[in-house]
């Protein structure tokens, strides 16, 4: 097999490659944040209680909150009342499964092609 000789990359081109990769990285974290789509969907139900009793706290739990410096239940009501919503649609779940499986299939398929080329060049002398 013909020996592949990689072209020499100029400094500007190297810099450009780094900028592209960094833009993708920051995009992956910040775009969902800017669009308000990031973070766990933990919400406080409307009309949730504000007293220890209404929030279902027993004597031991109240004592520990007091020991932590929270004597006013309203100060921690958001923490105590907030809950995740785990309802989901099967369609969304299937879409996620397809995305993950497709990603790994894509990786393995492209990698296999490249790997055969590497092995051929390494061992076919």
């Amino acid at each position: 097999m013909a020996h592949y000789v990689a072209p020499k990359q100029g400094k500007l081109s190297q810099l450009f490659d780094v900028v592209v990769l960094m833009a993708l990285t920051f995009g992956a974290l910040y775009i969902p944040m800017f669009l308000g789509l990031a973070g766990g969907v933990k919400t406080v139900p409307e009309g949730a209680g504000q007293t220890w009793e209404a929030m279902g706290q027993n004597a031991a739990q109240i004592a520990q909150y007091n020991a932590l410096g929270f004597t006013d239940p309203a100060a921690v009501s958001d923490i105590i009342n907030a809950r995740y919503d785990y309802s989901f649609s099967m369609t969304a779940l299937l879409v996620m499964v397809v995305i993950i499986v497709a990603y790994y299939v894509l990786m393995l398929k492209f990698s296999e092609t490249e790997y055969r080329e590497v092995i051929a060049e390494k061992f076919d002398k």
Binding site: L24, A28, G40, F88, Y103, F110
Partner: peptide, 20 residues
């Protein structure tokens, strides 16, 4: 992860697909 943080999961995989 899908339960509560599905958006990040999709964003992350989208990032790796584009980078790939």
């Amino acid at each position: 992860v899908f339960l509560g943080y599905g958006t990040q999961l999709v964003a992350m995989i989208a990032f790796y697909i584009v980078a790939s």
